[in-house]
Design a protein around this nucleic acid. Sequence first.
DNA 1: TGAATTAAGTTAACATGTTAAGTATACTGC
DNA 2: GCAGTATACTTAACATGTTAACTTAATTCA
Lengths: 161, 161
Amino acid sequence: MDAADPCKSELLRDFRRSLPMELLKAREAAMSRFRPMLRDHGFTEQQWRVIRALSDYAGIDATELARHSFLLAPSLTRILQYLEGENLVTRRSDARDQRRAVFSLTRKGRAAFDRVAPYSESLYANIEAEFGRDRLETLYTLLSQFYHTLAAAEEDAGSAG
Amino acid sequence: MDAADPCKSELLRDFRRSLPMELLKAREAAMSRFRPMLRDHGFTEQQWRVIRALSDYAGIDATELARHSFLLAPSLTRILQYLEGENLVTRRSDARDQRRAVFSLTRKGRAAFDRVAPYSESLYANIEAEFGRDRLETLYTLLSQFYHTLAAAEEDAGSAG
DNA sequence: TGAATTAAGTTAACATGTTAAGTATACTGC
DNA sequence: GCAGTATACTTAACATGTTAACTTAATTCA
């Protein structure tokens, strides 16, 4: 029942039908480390993704922000409204394209990022130490390949259809 | 910019801070194949997980069902209430333990499973064909190891604290 | 130029995720 | 056999996920 030598035949039996759930379980295993820490600092996982994205890319519009934080537009709209209300984020409308709004961290938002980021780094370091750097790197590479492979096929289907 | 030979230094730069998001992106790449199909059949992803679990393990209680479908108790409660309302699932209380309720698929629920499962299998087969069986197997194994490694450490921390 | 189309966000409606608190039943030890 | 505790859900409250519809601004093209 434990993970020392997982029964490979059972693993293969479930293989074809549970990859998304295995991705979910792996992600939850990681996030259960981060969520309590973020909560202690008053952030949800998604709010933190937005703040982190704005820390890397200041002054980007909502479409780019959605891409970097991997959030759907309606979720991002709500999160930005909340973060603006907390004075963590500011919105300016783009003079060249009135449809667009561009966002940045406020001083308070940047301070929040600087305060929380070290805890985040530390938790990642723990995970790396537990799972092993090489295996983690292999996993990361495979995930990236998986995403790009399936996303590319999606695009082909879209342009062909 | 494409995935043929991803810039490894950039990959490593983001490595420490974005594993959960890479897991999320990979999962979304897979689920974006399944969600429209499930929707056409009137199910959400989570409702389908419950039906699939009950197809494998008939007559289990909510705790086991939560474990097999990887849902939190409050979500499962709501989903089971909905599925009961649709006459897809039945609930019986356990005579030996009145706290427990055990669940099974109705005839209609089983029919729904039999109707949808082939589409699901077919989409998995596509993914396997696109990404490659060996790589998919490696990915699956790494994900399982990752989950068990982090979950085990969690338990240790829990029993130690 | 002006109608049709596209793009960028937002809103709406409903389902689920997450945490905390609540309720009822079972168990445990004295 | 009863108080204290643990278990198995359930409810509540709020945030996000998902799809569709809507609004406004830019673009296209006849």
